[in-house]
């Protein structure tokens, strides 16, 4: 016991040293770049507007019969969001969390499909993802996800739009600098769905990605497109170890 305790502090720096080659800097959530007032709003559940959607999602979870298969979400859904996108054996493709919720409703419950960026699906997604708040992002070691992750990385590095900029040029090369008035975050998907002050509402990661794509004057993909799932699959590997924040608040 005593030896194990002693070995730990020695082993840790060594492990960090060995892992050091992979990533130059430790990943940092966009939370770190926010104004103290916005950080305070996210931290305080009574001030965080995203909690309204989480509550709505809790009600929907019970009403829609999710409990029938999954029981109580705080037990069964803890950790789910940290592992998505995951491999979907039926579709033989990666699926994101909102996609899985839809699949449960439509395929298993025979319910009518929900709109991708509509309030009910946002609320359910926020409620499920909220159960993983504080847990580290932990993408599965699943070789079937490798092609999607590779595609996501290629899309992340591809220059696009009339302004001819790639995600990497802002979020890898210029993170922390100021684009006009806004600090550029590293672009980690830690807080979705999240409440954005500019939106005056809750929005998904896909909505954020569409904003960035439109910002460089490129044509966003349609909601639910496999390209977004691929980008998310890559972003989650890139953000490995960062704590989930759903529902986060962003400017």
């Amino acid at each position: 016991m005593k030896r194990a305790l002693l070995a730990f502090p020695l082993a840790l720096p060594l492990a960090l040293l060995l892992a050091g080659g992979a990533a130059a800097e430790p990943p940092q959530s966009g939370f770190a770049l926010m104004a103290p007032e916005t950080q305070a709003m996210q931290r305080d559940d009574t001030a965080n507007p995203g909690m309204l959607w989480v509550q709505e999602g809790e009600a929907l979870w019970a009403q829609s019969g999710c409990t029938g298969c999954h029981g109580d979400a705080p037990g069964s859904m803890r950790g789910a969001a940290s592992r998505y996108p995951a491999w979907d054996a039926t579709r033989q493709a990666p699926i994101d969390l909102a996609g899985r919720i839809e699949q449960c409703r439509v395929d298993r419950q025979g319910a009518a499909p929900l709109e991708r960026e509509g309030e009910p699906l946002l609320a359910l997604s926020a409620y499920v993802a909220h159960q993983s708040r504080g847990l580290p992002i932990d993408p599965p070691e699943d070789p079937r996800l490798a092609p999607a992750r590779a595609l996501g990385e290629a899309l992340f590095r591809e220059r696009r739009g009339q302004l001819d900029l790639s995600c990497a040029q802002c979020h890898d090369d210029n993170a922390g600098r100021r684009l006009g008035g806004s600090p550029i975050p590293q672009g980690h998907p830690t807080g979705y769905p999240l409440y954005r002050l500019e939106w005056q509402g809750l929005g998904s990661l896909q909505r954020r990605l569409r904003n960035c794509m439109a910002g460089v004057r490129s044509e966003p993909y349609a909601y639910g497109a496999p390209e977004y799932v691929a980008i998310e699959a890559f972003l989650m590997v890139r953000a490995r170890g960062l704590a989930l924040e759903t529902p986060a608040v962003r400017p």
Binding site: G161, Q162, S218
Partner: peptide, 11 residues
Amino acid sequence: LVRVGPAWQGK
């Protein structure tokens, strides 16, 4: 250029 938005194409 790649995937230029419809409003900006050719401009």
